[in-house]
């Protein structure tokens, strides 16, 4: 354990000194049809910090990149197919499916992923897509909630995300959402764990550098949910946050917690202007 920690620290110390592997300049077009904006001018709130925001796609190898360029090569899409079946499936005491209220997913969910997380007037809170999905299940369908980062949830988020692919991420950070956004921002810059690392230490200060053999991205979430080659499944944003915070050797916040909801809003806003890519493919 101690040795692993030492190695990790050594790698982190060495990272800024090692050769910089710049993100590439490839162009992401999915199915020879959907042209993705994968580099964009940084949103106003970031303009003092970054000139340009970049999709994590640019930081991956050509082989991994190509998996996202065709919906058949993208292994996430088989789970999107499964979610489409769930969309039509009646569950719960109310005898409803998603489709009972929302009809055709291609129509009703278009643009949704681009603006989430978003303020929910009725609940007086910032809502993530996962929270909205579970609210529909509990209140609308009277069915059991899904696990926040589970397979059903990840696949449904992917299905909903597909309907917004290519549209610019555009989450609102002012008005009633501002308090949560400020909280998320504070968390982004707060060091956690025995390694005392904040999100910014890796993804703002060191993107483009290698952390051991891995190419650090800006930590954008426009590609979420994302199919990772590492675990061969669709991963949700909060599961990824948990992994990152754990790797700083900290007790993590829980998926669905106020902290991670706020952090998701803030991190999403750092990618305002990038295309919705989910479900993307990453390593």
């Amino acid at each position: 354990m101690k040795f692993k920690a030492m190695t990790a620290i050594a790698a982190l110390v060495a990272a800024p000194l090692s050769a910089v592997a710049d993100p590439d300049d490839d162009t992401l077009v999915v199915n020879e049809e959907i042209e993705m904006v994968t580099k964009a001018a940084a949103p106003d709130h970031l303009s003092d910090t970054l000139d340009e925001v970049m999709s994590g796609w640019h930081f991956r190898s050509d082989e991994t990149q190509s998996l996202q360029m065709d919906d058949f090569d993208n292994p996430a899409m088989v789970f999107v197919d499964q979610a489409l079946e769930k969309w039509e499936e009646v569950e719960g005491a109310a005898g409803k499916s998603c489709a009972s209220c929302h009809d055709d997913v291609e129509e009703s969910m278009k643009g949704v992923r681009a603006v989430y997380p978003k303020w929910n007037d009725e609940k007086e809170a910032v809502y993530t897509m996962a929270m909205q999905i579970n609210d529909c299940r509990e209140t609308g369908m009277q069915a059991e909630k899904w696990k926040y980062t589970g397979g059903n949830m990840a696949a449904m988020e992917a299905l909903i995300s597909v309907q917004s692919r290519g549209m610019p991420v555009n989450v609102a950070i002012d008005g009633p959402a501002e308090a949560a956004w400020e909280m998320g921002k504070e968390l982004y810059y707060t060091r956690t764990g025995q390694l005392e690392l904040s999100c910014a230490n890796c993804h703002e200060d060191n993107y483009g550098n290698m952390i051991r053999a891995d190419h650090l991205s800006q930590g954008q979430i426009n590609g979420f949910p994302t199919y990772r080659l590492k675990n061969a499944k669709i991963n949700t944003v909060h599961a990824r946050f948990k992994g990152c915070v754990r790797d700083t050797r900290a007790e993590t916040y829980s998926p669905g917690s106020d902290e991670f909801v706020a952090l998701e809003l803030y991190v999403a806003s750092r990618g305002n202007g990038l295309s919705v890519e989910g479900p993307s493919v990453r390593n």
Binding site: A11, K242, D247
Partner: peptide
């Protein structure tokens, strides 16, 4: 085969 930087 590379070893990733993060376990996450």
């Amino acid at each position: 085969v590379t070893i990733g930087g993060c376990g996450g």
